[in-house]
């Protein structure tokens, strides 16, 4: 019961913290792309996911904004990098890249109680 009460209170408190005012159609599309390409299978987002590739909750800041994110995703080699981990080349359209970048921007603006500790994620 206490858990349900706390949950109810949390859900009521979320509008102040979860950056929903910036949750646009494009951001929602970005989240679908995030899911349908199983990004969480390598990366963490706000610390949750797999630990094979960098945290992306603050990727917007670390990679230098939307342009940085788009540039990185676009430039992944199709056959990987010999001997090293590499993100696959997903062949996203420009519109899709924009949606992913805006999704990551939206996530970076969620109030996460100052997590992660630094820019490295």
């Amino acid at each position: 019961m206490l858990f349900l009460a706390l949950s109810f209170d949390s859900v009521s408190a979320l509008p102040e913290r979860d950056n929903r005012q910036n949750l646009t159609e494009t951001v929602a599309q970005g989240k679908i792309l995030w899911e349908e390409n199983n990004c969480i299978g390598c990366h963490t987002l706000l610390g949750e996911g797999a630990y094979f590739a960098p945290e992306l909750g603050n990727a917007y800041h670390r990679l230098g904004g939307e342009a940085g994110i788009i540039g990185f995703i676009k430039s992944r080699p199709k056959d990987g990098i010999p001997g090293r981990r590499s993100m696959p080349q997903f062949n996203f359209s420009d519109e899709e890249l924009q949606a992913i970048a805006e999704f990551l921007k939206y996530v970076s603006e969620i109030n996460t109680a100052n997590w992660p500790p630094n820019i490295q994620g």
């Binding site: 199983n38 990004c39 969480i40 299978g41 390598c42 797999a50 094979f52 590739a53 199709k78 056959d79 990987g80 990098i81 010999p82 001997g83 090293r84 981990r85 590499s86 696959p88 080349q89």
Partner: peptide, 23 residues
């Protein structure tokens, strides 16, 4: 397989990328 991919990042790439093997 995924334990090895942590060390040899291109192991089975791009046929079975890490996210697929992990799930």
């Amino acid at each position: 397989i995924i334990g090895l991919q942590y060390l040899m990042g291109d192991f089975m790439f791009p046929e079975i990328p890490f996210n697929v093997a992990r799930m």
